[in-house]
Design a protein around this nucleic acid. Structure first.
Length: 270
DNA sequence: CAACAGGTTTGTA
DNA sequence: TACAAACCTGTT
């Protein structure tokens, strides 16, 4: 995919490997909003707007370099999709979510966001995160220090529910530097570390591995993936077994396969 | 009003 | 090691 960097704009040429709807609504990110025909994206303290153009899309932002990395624009998705197209189960999902890209998201923001995502829906996750941003830092994602300074009741007050204690405790178990240091670990060890965190189970760990650490050899299994699995594979209820089977089927591209399958399954398309 | 939502923890065989 | 049951909160 071609793109041109300007001073305050990234010009995406072509619509085959980049689609804001697919990218933002495939379940990997909560820091965005849809405003009419344009999307606003606000990871960390950064901001961008995505608008449709005749030839593709424009990403309007003052942080061009940040968003080139964030949208992983230098990765060749036509190659990934070509390799995945050999799996017949992915034929329709690839057709449906052709413009998906896995974002390179901040580890700390990932951890906090996905703790809140447990047994929760996107809309409410976004409401909770927005309240957190507004109350603590006027819109930007709060710093680790700011969050750690909050009492348990703060997390209750923003509507985190029983996840309040996950947030409160995890802030005392790890800091952003720890998370960065873990990048050098192999996936198995890294996964174990994540699972040791209070409130992080298999699904959330795999989400952080995929969306934060960029590990392809993982497969987050939620209710949608389980539905999909039990439709197309021999019936299995255990999420860990489902995950292991899917990882061994798709190997290093498992994470990508998960995104196409999830987006397709959740859309209700058949 | 009961069931459910991008699950995890805790308690019990 | 495996499987229930409980859990905040808003929606259907």
């Amino acid at each position: 995919m071609k793109f041109i960097q300007h001073k305050e704009k990234i010009e995406i040429i072509g619509k085959d490997d980049f689609n804001p709807v697919h990218i933002l609504e495939c379940g990997q990110v909560f820091s965005y909003s849809k405003e009419g025909d344009k999307y606003k994206v606000f990871p960390l303290d950064k901001y961008a707007e995505i608008v449709t153009t005749e030839k593709g899309y424009d990403i309007l932002t003052k942080d061009v370099d940040f968003f080139v990395h964030y949208f992983d624009l230098n990765t060749d998705y036509s190659y990934i999709k070509n390799r995945l197209s050999k799996f017949s189960i992915l034929r329709k999902p690839l057709e449906f979510g052709y413009g998906i890209r896995i974002l390179k998201q901040d580890l700390f923001e990932m951890l906090i966001s996905f703790l809140i995502s447990a047994n929760n829906n996107i809309k409410r996750i976004q409401v909770i995160l927005n309240r957190m941003r507004e109350k603590l830092s006027g819109g930007a994602f709060p710093s680790y220090e700011t969050l750690k300074a909050q009492p348990l009741e703060f997390f209750t007050s923003i509507g985190a529910g029983y996840r309040d204690k996950y947030l409160f405790n995890v802030l005392r178990q790890v800091n952003p530097q720890d998370l960065e240091n873990w990048q050098k670990l192999d996936t198995v060890t890294l996964r174990k570390n994540l699972l040791s965190l209070y409130g992080v189970g298999p699904k959330v760990a795999d989400c952080i591995l995929l969306f934060g650490y960029g590990r392809g050899d993982v497969f987050p299994v939620d209710t949608w993936i389980r539905k999909m699995y039990n439709t197309y594979y021999p019936k299995l209820e255990n999420r860990n077994q489902i995950r292991d089977n899917l990882v061994s089927e798709f190997g290093g591209l498992a994470g990508y396969a998960q995104q196409y399958l999830f987006y397709y399954q959740r859309s209700g398309q058949k």
